[in-house]
Design a protein around this nucleic acid. Structure first.
Lengths: 123, 123
DNA sequence: CGGTATCCTCGACGATACTG
DNA sequence: CAGTATCGTCGAGGATACCG
């Protein structure tokens, strides 16, 4: 019987249980409340820090920075610093990040087909 | 400019920003550490509580119950109680849950293609 | 403009014990 | 067998202030 260990997508899983490894890895890189929105927002063009922040208007700067750093560590996006004053930084999708778009697309279709709002409290 | 509000996939989003609503909803129903593994495990056949627990051997009973309840609330799985002693409960995928399988499949492919292990500490 | 640095809250997750 | 009930931990996310 296949058994899952705590470390989720530990390296040994890649050979032993590739399916689980694959799903767990993808869930991992997309984990976080804003990541898939950021990826979707970058799909057509590079965007500046402030543009992303405006798009996600409720996100605190600190959180956005953290999410962007994680996306960068996982090579889903690239960060481009222009040596200008005032500073200017652009984020764009990498090829790896672009490979996620079909998944986001299917998630969108699933949500639109099946989405029901239950148990959402009013603000 | 499209702007995201805190409530994520609030009802009004369905009309205003269907793409965001769809992705957010799908992320929501799949949120949780074990859910996509449970769905994947149920893909071919109904499974008893204990079978699922054995598959996810590190999961505490309480956590498993909670994940199953949430999946059931979101209509991704069905719960079937057999009136026997000792009790017997089977979980199976609903049609809605089955619609997630292609997404899990793509997540698997993405993970296998791009998965790199970084920053995982040894147990 | 595009960040860091702190501190805090809150809920997911988990460990353990008990039950119909 | 398949759950509840309770309590504790831990870290993501968020609020706020300051910086190159």
């Amino acid at each position: 019987m296949t058994r899952i260990c705590k470390d989720g997508f530990h390296e040994e899983f890649r050979e032993k249980y590739p399916i689980i490894f694959g799903m767990a890895y993808t869930q991992h890189v997309l984990s976080g409340r804003w990541k898939f929105l950021i990826i979707w927002f970058l799909k057509d063009q590079a965007r500046r820090f402030h543009e992303i922040k405006s798009f996600l208007n409720d996100i605190p700067q600190g959180s956005l920075t953290k999410q962007l750093r994680e996306l960068e560590e996982n090579r889903l996006i690239s960060r481009h610093v222009f040596p200008e004053v005032p500073p200017r930084v652009e984020y764009s999708l990498s090829d790896k990040g672009r490979d996620l778009l079909p998944i986001l697309d299917m998630m969108e279709k699933f949500g639109l087909k099946h989405g029901e709002i239950t148990q959402i409290k009013e603000a």
